[in-house]
Write a protein that binds this DNA or RNA. Structure first.
Lengths: 240, 240
DNA sequence: AACCCGGGCGACCATCGGACGCTGGTGCC
DNA sequence: GGCACCAGCGTCCGATGGTCGCCCGGGTT
């Protein structure tokens, strides 16, 4: 039959079910490039996992089979973030904000790779940091990157990209006040809402116009804040 | 607690679960504007349903409760398309290609509306014709628009947008040869692949550069064809 | 050592983009 | 009227964007 979309006989067979996208066949992933450690993890503030790098030990499965006397270093969970000022190294079992922001740059790099690959394979080419990118990052060994975390702090990174000055001030302020990360994170919204106001409330546009931000989805909460602020604005002056 | 993302007390309550997006609350939809019939359905070639417009009768449910002697006019399925040349009205219980292409323009209009609405509500604003747009079209009474159909013929519409001349020629050719719609549809791929070749195989870019096409996803089949043709190109000259 | 605070991220969910193939409309004989 | 063709579109499916809250790490007492 000629239909069922199998046109171009020479093509049909060759192209058919050949999308490695969704599983990213380990073949392609394991190899070389090693983005994770040499350049990237080294740059910012690796209080995280390369303190001693006891390499991968067995993954403890809920209190079972844990050598006694060895409380290991194969941490599963990343150390929590604390508010640090720019250039400051986090003390103790914590990670600083420079490290947090570097994670976003790493993701951008992983996105680049995914884009390159999908172009070579003739697949849909992602424009944003998608699930596929997180999966790719994991396969490349960047297990410290995960979706919920990255999405959680996107707007903090946004402020960092859009107004480094103000972002740095806020970090210093919240550090000196000994506020926790959650409080700092919340505080990052306000300056962004102000920026949106100055850009006709087009927060989407604000993101898209910035080279580094373009690849990140605007967080729902930020969009909502902009929306309600806009409404309050136009409420309070009853003309127009 | 201050976290759990409920910051800005005055905002939290007001904004919370107020996304009408996914159901499009009939309230907002039923009303006015009536895109469907007056301007749009009237323009092209409504061999479709307004021949007599016996308004909505009961939807027959698989041979049950059908007034005898009344084999009604409440057609469920649209009349199939036939290959028509530009300006030609389809004869009999068929629809012509001008009508098909108009459906795409209607979708663009529905997308506009959805974008307007989502901007007003501070929701994510779709850039492409998404499920939401099809749902909106249906709610607005354009029941003759549906996703599988529109996706099926996207590349035909693409040719129509990108090279009207060639599209028209192809239509005439296939009409004169008395080819069926499926054959014409298949034939539409080739000129597009050629266009992609002339644009560095960037079919995505070809779509995005065209005002009307930008809102449509590049069909998988077309992307795959471009990919395999590209491979054949570079195979056949062994240098580089 | 025990406790409690805070936040990392596993895992879930609604919805998405995408596709297949059944159903039945349609024209021909 | 009956049949064979073929295409419309209901309906499914894997994967996506987005989120919640459990679990436990870590600092404090």
């Amino acid at each position: 039959r000629a239909d069922n979309d199998l046109m171009f006989p020479e093509v049909a067979g060759a192209v058919g079910p050949f999308n490695l996208n969704s599983k990213e066949a380990a073949l392609f992933e394991q190899s070389h490039t090693q983005l994770g450690t040499p350049r990237l993890l080294a740059i910012p503030e690796p209080s995280s996992d390369n303190e001693k790098k006891k390499v991968g030990r067995k993954k403890q499965k809920h209190k079972m089979s844990q050598e006694p006397g060895d409380d290991g270093d194969d941490r599963t969970r990343e150390h929590p973030f604390i508010v640090t000022e720019p250039g400051e190294l986090a003390r103790g079992k914590k990670n600083g904000l420079d490290y947090l922001f570097d994670l976003y740059e790493q993701c951008a790099r992983f996105l680049d790779e995914v884009q390159q690959m999908s172009k070579e394979r003739g697949e849909k080419c992602p424009v944003k940091v998608t699930n596929q990118v997180f999966r790719h990052a994991k396969l490349k060994g960047a297990s410290y990157i995960n979706k919920p975390k990255m999405r959680h702090y996107v707007h903090c990174y946004a402020l960092h990209c859009l107004d480094l000055q103000q972002s740095n001030h806020l970090r210093k302020l919240y550090k000196d006040r000994r506020e926790n990360v959650g409080a700092w994170r919340q505080a990052c919204y306000l300056p962004l809402v102000e920026m949106a106001r100055q850009n006709g409330w087009d927060i989407e546009g604000v993101f898209n116009r910035n080279e580094k931000l373009r690849i990140w989805y605007v967080p729902t909460k930020l969009r909502q804040l902009c929306h309600t602020e806009k409404s309050k604005d136009s409420d309070s002056c009853s003309y127009e």
